[in-house]
Design a protein around this nucleic acid. Structure first.
Lengths: 355, 355
DNA sequence: TGTTCTTGCGTTAACGGTAACACAAAAATT
DNA sequence: AATTTTTGTGTTACCGTTAACGCAAGAACA
């Protein structure tokens, strides 16, 4: 393999010191235009590529960001990642991908690795509620940002920025939609209790119930884990109740898809016999044959915003208190909750066991 | 922020030279067990994290791989990426993610950046047929591997390994399936001409036609671009023909999904009025309401194999000629091709329930 | 015309590791 | 007991950059 050419090679050919070459390449002041151009010409002639490793060592900056994610297999995260990666590139940063696969100890190893490799900052897309790793980072003042999921730990809130959707409002919108369609018995399948978004969406749902004068019934709140299987099981569970709900809000689309399947398996029709609403608006939920009503959020923008905020913090020094950027969710009406003609006048839906 | 501790800090505390600390940390021979343990104790006490940047500079190895991909938004690539990332981690490597978004000049910039950052090798998941960037890399003998899509350039074939599915066989299986179901008029929507996999799947399809004594009719072969839209347009085009085909093979699932929609929009039923088969078996095609018959390939394993092969080449020196690893595709029968009364027994495959 | 300021560049020292080499002391061999 | 080999460690150089500092020559000012 070709020997890599360095600034010293250029220096020799240009009859200057390697420092001067460095100055020319970095467009520093106090260099004669003539010599600069000579050096630049030689550099491009030789197709010189700077060695970022060496630069990083002395500058203590790598122009690289770590992205810690549970799994990119979830379309929600892939879209988020796209926003993150594309924006990072546009700002001159690269992304090192780290899929923790829901393993907290793996996360710790990732963080150590990333810090060893000198990343300038780390993006966490799926922080656990009391994630000790993130708390540790916050204590050290290491540049990091939380996207999507957050942590309520005071130290983290104080030091680490956050970008996410208003999950409480999202949950509210979902359940409100069901209520406005005439539902009074609404089942909710939450996310894992370690996740802030699951918790918040649940809170929003409860808020909608109380706002509209409906009771919050414990049996109608099931805990899930954001995976399809738990949506499926939740659906089955609801349908086996003496008084099943007439509508179900699943805290994400994956679970909603599982619930969908459970409902069909029990011989019920959607939306006639059971209304269903999800959360996230992942690709494919809009496809024919599914057309899930759901709560949408700007995933790509969220990722983009996260990177911008993080890079700002990295490059702007450690100034300023931490930010919390909250985006607006949006109700996306498709076909799994039925239609409303005017002002939410919907055909009242009686299930057999309604009293 | 805390000052990062270095081997020199440890050396001072242990009363040895920094070289000895390096020896202890790297488990080199010729060091007294006693001193080694003392050093290791101090290192873990101080929670020492090695500086990979410095190590990389002298060793000329970063334990980092570049992943050049068109977009991770395509579920095919996300699953591939998962295999790549997980395997890389298990072998001690990190992945820098580079989404080219179908832009060849972006690819060139990515490659330069990756080389500047000193990655030990690059994985290409979607090489163009005559990709000059990859040819350049091959000429320099830089460690690289092609996954999924390939290049037929002799220099690349000679120097760069390849892992992919047998797309010719896959195309053959798809069309053969349709033929065995009794179809004689089969429309094919190919991939982009810049992609080896599109070309190969088409070849396989033609081979099936001639093998079973059917004519290869030019009008029945449309060029697509692997995106949903071109599948949709292709479907429309076929249906507007005087003699539309009775079955369509789309060279990937995304296009098949588009074709699906076009068919439904024209008021036809699948599979009664039109049979449809795709390629890749991406998630969601198995979902209720779609259940696309398709050609499956082991995406995760493909990614894993690619990383293993690349790392082998990196770590084993540049020995040995290049490898071509070809995996077997698999016909996955679901519901979009229907059943045939006589002679062709179909055992339906259980849909792969995700997560 | 002498003094100060600016410009342009070279010298040298980092950054945090690894590796080649040297050289005593200890162990093994004769 | 003398010689050779092995073991354990320190010294020094180096990887390819950037940055602090120094200094001569020219420009600006008095």
């Amino acid at each position: 393999m070709h020997k890599k050419i360095t600034i010293k090679d250029i220096a020799r050919l240009a009859n200057v010191s390697h420092t001067t070459v460095s100055r020319a390449l970095n467009n520093k002041s106090r260099i004669k235009n003539e010599t600069k151009e000579k050096i630049l010409a030689i550099a491009s002639e030789l197709n010189y590529q700077p060695n970022f490793i060496a630069r990083s060592l002395v500058m203590n900056r790598t122009k690289t960001l770590g992205l810690v994610i549970t799994t990119i297999a979830n379309p929600f995260y892939t879209e988020l990642s796209q926003g993150i990666e594309t924006t990072a590139i546009s700002l001159g940063y690269n992304i090192i991908l780290c899929s923790s696969n829901y393993d907290l100890s793996a996360e710790k190893q990732y963080i150590n690795m990333l810090r060893s490799k000198g990343v300038d900052g780390i993006i966490f897309t799926s922080a656990h509620m009391g994630d000790p790793n993130i708390i540790g980072l916050a204590e050290k003042g290491f540049p990091a940002i939380l996207v999507n999921r957050r942590t309520y730990h005071p130290m983290v809130r104080e030091k680490v920025d956050y970008v996410g959707v208003d999950n409480i409002l999202g949950g509210f919108l979902a359940v409100e939609h069901l209520i406005k369609l005439g539902h009074k018995w609404i089942g909710v399948i939450g996310g894992s209790s370690e996740s802030s978004v699951g918790f918040e969406r649940l809170e929003g749902g409860k808020k909608a119930l109380t706002t509209y004068g409906l009771k919050v019934i414990g049996d109608y709140f099931l805990e899930g884990d954001f995976l399809k299987g738990s949506g499926y099981q939740g659906g089955k569970k609801f349908l086996k109740m003496d008084e099943p709900p007439t509508a179900i809000f699943a805290a994400n689309d994956y679970m909603a898809l599982g619930t969908y399947q459970a409902i069909l398996e029990e011989g019920l029709k959607i939306p006639e016999d059971m209304a269903l609403i999800g959360f996230n608006d992942i690709e494919f939920t809009s496809m024919r044959g599914i057309e899930l009503t759901t709560i949408g959020q700007k995933k790509y923008e969220m990722g983009a915003l996260a990177v911008k905020t993080l890079v700002e913090r990295i490059e702007g020094g450690k100034v300023g208190p931490s930010k919390e950027i909250i985006l607006e969710p949006e109700l996306i009406i498709r076909k799994t909750c039925g239609f409303h003609s005017k002002g939410y006048q919907i055909e009242s839906k009686k299930s057999n066991d309604e009293q």
